[in-house]
Design a protein around this nucleic acid. Structure first.
Lengths: 314, 314
DNA sequence: ATCGCTTGTGAGAGCGCTCTCACAGATCCG
DNA sequence: CGGATCTGTGAGAGCGCTCTCACAAGCGAT
């Protein structure tokens, strides 16, 4: 009745409220959850190591926008990062047990079936990034990674570069695959040969970008442009380029992906493909909340546009 | 019974487990919470803007270590940042309603009575940093800010600097006050006059440090050493110093506070006072969990030591 | 064989809320 | 003025667990 039913007289309501105030009564939310089945919390689940979660501004940006969107809706965010199998198991029990109304799932690897299991247990789940399997039955929000890869590669190609290479992300993740696909499609569209020696596999991290670049330069010292699949990787690319005596933005031009805040602060400032990180987080959260509300006219797939941000490295 | 009571025969237990498996039964945690009064979640509450929460590596470091420590204990973390009054109210209802077993409270400002209210509602609370009021009745974990301020100031004084200034943190927070107190005590101990024109008020942010330094240099162009109350502020100090044509580490030496990862990556690398951020987060979490367990032999006050890290700016 | 003891099992209350349903009182119509 | 309709209120069931308590079964000691 404290919820403010319509069919209660005003003075009765006031009286009860006053009394509640007086004894500082607080409704027991667990009891409410038990009967309504709603906990008013949603989970933000990241399948990465703590190290990566906190080193990559992409995840932090997503956490920030999700936290804001959830707060606006009046719910709370349960923040979990899982890497060990036991953590996964515990989270599954927690979510299935009704402690959260839904989950935002980030950084799914390979053919991991966690989202399917959550859905099977009745927990609505929204993914960040297209899943490698089960795309037809899962809900996800993604940036247009293919277009982004194409945009970056095209720019390098059109600015007269002869040997445009790419340092990829991890290929067990769709973002890694798609950005590479964008690179390939741009190379083909320009009528050039797809040369696999120009593709070096990284993992979105700075260290990975650095190592991948060193390996790349080893076999192709003539590279004069690199599209890196993430900004962090691009920082590693730039470092490797410098260490091997190349001038960045001159001998070799570089484009990153993400447009994390640090990209603009580097010198030279990094040219990159901007993902709309705040919009991604907000859209995921809204979609999840709508699903929790029971709406069923919602698109399983939402793809947000990306945009090339020209700075000094290309 | 599924919890694994001691007094159940083995074969009965196995039979039940098998059956549970078969129908993929998952215990309803809300019902359990209702009767046990435990939700197996604790809150990580930051009283800052989202902007500051995500811009300051101190908070991120605390979030990370708290998340790790909570996961080890098998609980979940509810992550909330509140700035508007309505967010506070909603959080209070959420916590008091039993959705969390305790709260880790960061960045308390002024004489905010939020922790007292939480405790009054039966929600154990552990603070990061000594509260400005109610210190006798609250639990907190803090770094030794006074000693840190003294350490930094002493080093500047002993290296022969003549006009050692300080750019403070916000003075409505105990960390800001204590680091300034450390500065003052070092100046006095060295037998020098306390010159208030050498104290410039900042707010722990880079922009604040920048502005405070500009104001400081305006009235005291002869300053040749600055102790900044946070690393972020120190970055602002360095920028202001450069903009006014001074050589950092030479014309003016600088010491920061925190030792966030970025401090070592600057050039010149920042000399700073290291706070044991991971230990701070872990200690807070352990203390909170112990309180939740009902232990009552726990110290209300825990102060962890800090240490001067010499790099290039001083 | 009977008595007490331990050990294991099953029934039932109760956690604090929401929601339905029945009823009392007020309002309206013929 | 009586009956039908509407509004507001109170009682009571039920959500799914945990925990206590009574009892059944098994066992050694008398």
């Amino acid at each position: 009745m404290l919820r403010g039913d319509a069919k209660v007289s005003d003075h009765a309501r006031d009286a009860v409220h006053a009394a509640a105030q007086a004894i500082s009564y607080v409704p027991n939310l667990a009891a409410r959850t038990l009967v309504t089945g709603r906990s008013d919390s949603i989970a933000f689940l990241v399948e990465e190591t703590e190290e990566r979660m906190f080193a990559d501004p992409f995840f932090l940006g997503m956490l920030r926008s999700a936290q804001e969107a959830v707060a606006v809706a009046g719910l709370q965010l349960v923040f979990t990062v899982v890497n060990r199998a036991e953590d996964r198991q515990r989270f599954l029990a927690y979510a299935a047990g009704g402690h959260v109304d839904g989950v935002l799932l980030l950084s799914l690897h390979g053919r991991d079936r966690l989202p399917q299991r959550l859905e099977a247990l009745g927990v609505p789940t929204v993914l960040s990034g297209r899943p490698l399997s089960g795309r037809r039955r899962l809900w996800y929000v993604d940036a247009d990674n293919v277009a982004g890869g194409r945009l970056a590669t095209n720019h390098l190609l059109e600015s007269g570069r002869r040997h445009v290479a790419t340092v990829t992300g991890p290929l067990d993740m769709c973002a890694g695959q798609d950005r590479l696909a964008g690179y390939r499609s741009a190379v083909e569209a320009a009528g050039r040969d797809l040369d696999e020696s120009l593709v070096s596999i990284g993992d979105f991290t700075q260290a990975g970008g650095h190592a991948a670049t060193l390996a790349l330069l080893e076999r192709r010292p003539d590279v004069d442009a690199i599209f890196a699949a993430s900004d962090l990787a691009a920082f590693g690319v730039v470092r490797a380029l410098r260490e091997t005596g190349r001038r960045v933005g001159d001998d070799v031009t570089v484009i990153g992906f993400d447009d994390i805040p640090e990209a603009a602060e580097q010198s030279p400032a990094l040219t990159t493909v901007r993902q709309p990180i705040p919009a991604l987080g907000t859209t995921m959260t809204r979609l999840l909340l709508d699903r929790i509300e029971g709406r069923d006219d919602l698109p399983r797939r939402t793809v947000l546009p990306v945009q090339l941000v020209l700075r000094q490295t290309a």
